[in-house]
Amino acid sequence: MNAHLRANLWLLGLTIVLCSVIYPLVLWGIGQTVFTEKAEGSMITGAKGEVIGSHLIAQPFTTDEYFQPRPSAASYKGEASGGTNWAASNYLLRDRVARQLGPVVKYASGPKKGQLAAPDIEAWFQKDQYAGKPGIVAQWANAHSTVAQNWVKADEMNGNYVTAWQKTHDVEVAQWKTANPDNTDPKPEDLAVPFFTSFSKSYPGTFPSAVEHKSPDGRTEKTVEPVKAGTDIQSVFFDMWTHEHPDADLEKVPGDMVTASFSGLDPHITLDNANWQLDRVAAAWAKRTGADPANTRGEIEQLLREKTFAPLGGLVGESLVNVLEMNITLQGRYQKSAGGTVF
């Protein structure tokens, strides 16, 4: 037994020295001397030497001037990577994609070719008829209770709006309580379905959305109110609208534009996706710089071509563009002439 004990301790000690001291030290030494920048995470530095991102990690962009990366389930947090882990059969996936599409989708043919579908979605929504029955919002909440509950949880304002409704609608709340005897202390989101059902009756053709007001002292305040139009309606009800309009010929958007990666940090988009965003990006810069829109578009298209690469020389994948690198190039090229600061 002593021999076993000795051998075990020797093996433990020796493997620790070899695998956890010598081996990582050698790699660390090589990394720090030969591959200095890569070993630190391929960071990009700005004019003042500050870190402004990593070549390998996606960074969020929201304004029209910039190419936007793929959606991120990790909110682009470089310290907490992760995906949605949603199955094809999970409605949350379809809902997220539909919401992203609604405000941006255009007709592919017909008299409205090239125009946004969004105004038609709003007009349809205001008529408040789905599957031959009135009450789009009520039908939506009943079919997709998880999504309706998520709306309540998404913002404190929304929760407060439901709580305020709860105080004045004893009948509906009592009905819900009879149906759910186990839940004696319902949270606002538990009441999402009865809330939307009742809302749909009280305010047909509208959806509760945040609206900005200027208060007398000049500050902007947000309140939740029934609205007839806007991004919320275009996005939330796009999926239902497509069901009612199966013949609408819509332009297809590139798949990677509406799907999230598993890391949430995928730094690339496909060239198709970049080209889809090109009009918006070029128009925004042309507006800021006052240059000719067609020229700007041509310039940015040229930049895209220069930045495009394909995995293993195209042997295994599509042409891709690194979003952060592309946007830094755009900023360096146009920000100065637009009067902004270049880092």
């Binding site: 949605t84 990677d256 890391s263 988009i269 295994v316 994948g317």
Partner: peptide, 28 residues
Amino acid sequence: PNPGLAGLPVDQHLGNLEGKELRFGTSA
């Protein structure tokens, strides 16, 4: 394609891209 997105105007010729990274290649 990802069957969950059937009927939505999404170009799925690269297959199901939810949860995929682009840089590894199409079937990676």
